[in-house]
Nucleic acid binder design. Sequence first.
DNA 1: CATAAACTGTTTACAAGGAAACATTCTGCT
DNA 2: AGCAGAATGTTTCCTTGTAAACAGTTTATG
Lengths: 161, 161
Amino acid sequence: MSQAETAELTASDEVEAIDLGNIGRSLGFLLRLSQVEVFGMFYRALSRHEMKPGEFSILYVIHLNPGVRQGALAERLMVKRAQMTKLIRVLEGRGLVARTIPPDNRRIVHLHLTEDGRRFVSENERAFLGYVNQETDRLTPSEADQLTRLLRKFIGLEGTP
Amino acid sequence: MSQAETAELTASDEVEAIDLGNIGRSLGFLLRLSQVEVFGMFYRALSRHEMKPGEFSILYVIHLNPGVRQGALAERLMVKRAQMTKLIRVLEGRGLVARTIPPDNRRIVHLHLTEDGRRFVSENERAFLGYVNQETDRLTPSEADQLTRLLRKFIGLEGTP
DNA sequence: CATAAACTGTTTACAAGGAAACATTCTGCT
DNA sequence: AGCAGAATGTTTCCTTGTAAACAGTTTATG
C-alpha cells in the first residue's frame, strides 16, 4: 500500500453504502471530487519534477506570451494578484522566470522565461498537459472531449477553440 | 463595483488577449477555473447563511445517513480525517451535529443531526443544492445534465444514478 | 493470555490561498 | 504645476487544508 492515502483504499462497503443523495448531482461537489482525482493523477505522474500544476501553468502561459504583465496573467489564470506575487517569486528564485520593470511605467512588471525556463517548458510540455487519461481511464476520448468542451462553455472560454 | 474582485472585471482586452495555448484544454485547468466560478456563484447566492459548501455537504449527508461513522463520512466526501475532525467540531459547536461514541467500540464516532440541524437542512436544502444555474447560465439544462453525468463517470460515481 | 499490529480519531506543525491594508507610481482634472 | 484618485504590485494577517506524529482502542497472533 503506497499511494491512495486520500481514498485510503479501505473501500469497505460501509463507505460506498453512504447515500450522497442529490449532492451527488451538485456541480460544485462533483467539481471538487474531480479536482481531487486529477490532483492525484498529477502527483502520481509528475511529482518527480518538483513542480506543481499552478506553477507549470504560469510558466507555460509566459512561454506563449513573453512580456505579459503580471497582473494580467493573474487575472487570466484567475489567481489573486497577491498569490501571483508569491508564485512568481518562487519561479524567479528557481531561475525560470525573469521580471523586468519598464522605465516608462514603473508600476508594472513584465514577465519572461529564462533560458532554463524555456527549456523546461519545451521538454516537459507534453508530460504536463497530458498526464490525465494515462490512468484508469473512465472516460472514452470522445467523452473527455465532450467534458472539456462543456467546461469551457461553462466558464465562458468558448471564444478560442 | 461590489463583487467581482476575483475577475476584477477589468476585462481590459489585454487580459483576454493572453494566449492560453493547450492549457486551455487541460482538464485540471478547466476544473480549477470551473470551481472558482461555482464558488463565486455560491457566495453571491448563499453567503448570508454563514455556511460554506463543505459544511453543508456534511450536514446533508449526515441527514441522509444518521449515525454514519465520522471516518467513513470523511472518506466518502474525500476529505482527510484530520480535516473532518475540525469541521465536525465546528458544526457541533453550532449545535447542528451531535457525536456519540458507542460503548461496544469506543474508537469510533457516530454522527447525528440535532433538531436544529435537521431543520436547517430541511429549510435550506433546495437553496444549497440549486444555487448553480440561477446565474448567468452559459449552459442549457441539457448541457448541464450532460456535464454532471460526465463528471460522475470521471470520478467513478456512476453506480448510483 | 499477552503482546504486536491495525484502526480511529485527534493534535500539532506547516504550507497554500484569500482579504485587506499598504507603498509606489501614474493619470486626469483644474 | 499640483493634487485627488486610480492602478499595480507587495506585505501582513487570517482561514483552510495537508502531513505526520500521537493516544486510545480493538483485533490478531503466537
